[in-house]
């Protein structure tokens, strides 16, 4: 099967609407098809991977923990819009330290999250075969 480049575009925060968790579920299902998958977080989507989420008070599943599993599913390209972070007073240090083990480099642990400018993101997007918006 020819590999295609899939990008999942996440633009909503996690718990107010179902977009974020739906996106994550689709990503995990699609991971079984061994395509080239990347995730982009822009606008309020950046809140999906902010460190320190605690959903005890709202009775919902804290699926931010699930992002830590993405490395096991060979999903290790998570692009975050620098402008969206900045607008919200956030920095890369506020994000979860998501990592993957690099098969080609003696399973060394490497960061999956990359903060990029909108211009860089636009270039990455135009390189995709399919973009799915959530």
């Amino acid at each position: 099967m020819a590999t295609k480049k899939f990008m999942y575009l996440n633009r909503k925060a996690s718990y107010g609407t179902v977009y974020a968790i739906e996106s994550l579920e689709v990503v995990l299902i699609a991971a079984a098809f061994e395509q080239d998958v990347s995730l982009a977080f822009i606008d309020d989507g950046v809140y999906q991977i902010v460190e320190g989420q605690n959903t005890d008070g709202i009775g919902m599943k804290n699926f931010s923990k699930t992002f830590h599993a993405l490395g096991d599913y060979d999903i290790n390209k998570l692009y975050v819009s620098a402008e969206s972070l900045e607008e919200r007073g956030l920095t890369a240090d506020d994000l979860m330290p998501l990592v993957y083990e690099d098969e080609d480099d003696d399973w060394e642990e490497k960061p999956s999250v990359k903060v990029v400018s909108n211009a860089e993101l636009s270039k990455i997007m135009s390189d995709q075969d399919v973009c799915l918006s959530f």
Binding site: L28, A31, K61, F63, K65, T66, H68, A69, D72, Y73
Partner: peptide, 15 residues
């Protein structure tokens, strides 16, 4: 408990 999902079989076998 750690990830809030059940692992895919591929991930399970590896682990």
């Amino acid at each position: 408990e750690e990830y809030q999902i059940a692992p895919a079989v591929r991930v399970l076998t590896k682990a």
